[in-house]
Amino acid sequence: MTSAAIVIPSADIERRLPVVAAVRDAGAIAWRNLITYRRVPQLLVFSTIQPVIFVLMFRYVFGGAIKIPGGVPYVDFLMPGIFVQTVVFGAMAAAIGLATDLKTGLLERFRTLPMSRSAVLAGRTLADMSRNVFVIALMVLVGVAVGFRVHTSMLEVIAGLLLVLLFSYAMSWVFALVGLAVGDPETSQAAAFPVLAPLVFASSAFVPVSSMPTWLQGFALHQPVSAVITAVRDLTLGAQATGGSTGTDAIQALAWCAGILVVFAPLAVWRYRRTV
């Protein structure tokens, strides 16, 4: 027992610029979350089965009864809705993953390490976004297989898919907050559904909003899921088919993504810092 200073060789710890450290830390966490998909491939398989079933169900079961104004084929109308619906439901993974880490004490360990405060959440959401690249690509293939055709340039289609990806990223932050606040994987899943269901189903994803009762149309037209779907339809079907304006709709969709990120990312980080 000595009261003299204890010296650690300075090579043992690297001091990096905060920005560099934040990116590296987030990368390490994203890597860790992505490994989970390799080790437990069921996670990925089951998260893709549900959207595929939705495609088949709406394309072949309900689709025949749904008439789209402007004579757009239903499958072309449906697929942008499916892309967005898939990533929105998929965003629940952030809540479940973080709630699990919270429960097992892993977040507590991370919080005792000299790592960036945003890294656990940034890494989680980045991993989810990488997963979504795969999921969206798969849904495009499934769509093409059931007759989905784009009517615009490749550039516009790519912009549309990137928009879906950006929206999925924003939604991951919403669910990061949910997972941290609820703190239990099963409960956070149960808590997320009642919020998600109206956003996804009371939207233009599967049916034209004009077929809904007037009181619902106001919500269905102006909520974020519909805004993003509308912009993606402009970018895949062409604005003349949707009767909108690609520019205006895209700006609206981007504004929603930015708004959600600006509100929920700081809230989630704040919540992370005072969790446990």
């Binding site: 710890i13 990096r16 360990r109 790592m115």
Partner: peptide, 19 residues
């Protein structure tokens, strides 16, 4: 639980800012 023993320790090493 989904990482190996080695991966767990390396993850902590990276987050602890070891070279």
């Amino acid at each position: 639980p989904n990482l190996t023993g080695t991966e767990n320790l390396r993850l902590i090493g990276r987050l602890a800012q070891l070279p």
